[in-house]
Nucleic acid binder design. Structure first.
Lengths: 123, 123
DNA sequence: ACCCAGTTTCGTCGTTTGTCGAACATCGCA
DNA sequence: TGCGATGTTCGACAAACGACGAAACTGGGT
């Protein structure tokens, strides 16, 4: 039977020129996915199951799919596991500075609310 | 009766420190809202009804609400009209470089797909 | 051959989103 | 006082989203 004959369908990744800004922004507008991205920036690659996010495996798989199809991450299969990596070069080519700026904003989003605000300001 | 006695409820705007990154990214992940933001960057202020977006007034009102409550725009009432303005200073204070980077990315998102791609590349 | 560990796919559920039309409110003007 | 212009609020609706569990698939041991 098509046991090892049938190849698993290749993982769909958009080409660099096809990465859509709205898809990227939507992908990044979810805390779980943003956590994945933040972790992924520190390491070149990481297996799916090793992310410290508190959701069911199927949910995690869904988030990886969103990230992959939006062009934010690249997924590579190795044996049983699936490794994910940030498409930093591609993203930088398509939308220069976007990833770094968003990740810098993320850092400010977390501990920035209480600290570091000058007196008061309207604008 | 409370005709001019009752004040209209003040428009809710988040304080600078309370602007949430996820709300901002979500607000910017919609084409209609992004159009509003792009137009608003060119002019200091603009009345709601004067935006060349092809949606019903109620839909437009909804989008303005999303933009306002996420902290992207400021709305000011003047007589009958409601004027909107980008909170560029606040956004720059909260998330430095974010707005400019996203708007630059938007320009590339539109005419960038066909042009300017070197041979080919995987990453 | 078997089973286990790692992941995805499928179906479902409740919530949110974007859209609209209709009704309501407010202001300025005749 | 009434009318028109400008916007909002209130349902309604389909589509998409995030979450889950159950089932299925894959590859590596035993």
């Amino acid at each position: 039977m098509p046991r090892s004959t049938r190849r698993r369908p290749a993982l769909a990744h958009p080409a660099v020129e096809e990465i859509d800004l709205y898809d990227v922004l939507h992908a990044l507008s979810d805390p779980t996915r943003m956590t994945i991205v933040r972790i992924l920036r520190a390491e070149p690659e990481r297996a799916c199951g090793t992310f410290p996010v508190d959701v069911a495996p199927s949910t995690l798989s869904h988030h990886f799919k969103v990230l992959r199809e939006s062009g934010v991450i690249n997924q590579r299969e190795e044996g049983n596991r699936r490794f994910s990596a940030l498409r930093t070069v591609d993203l930088e080519r398509r939308f220069p500075g976007l990833l770094d700026t968003v990740l810098a904003a993320l850092a400010r989003n977390e501990h920035g609310a209480e600290l570091g605000a000058e007196p008061a300001w309207h604008g």
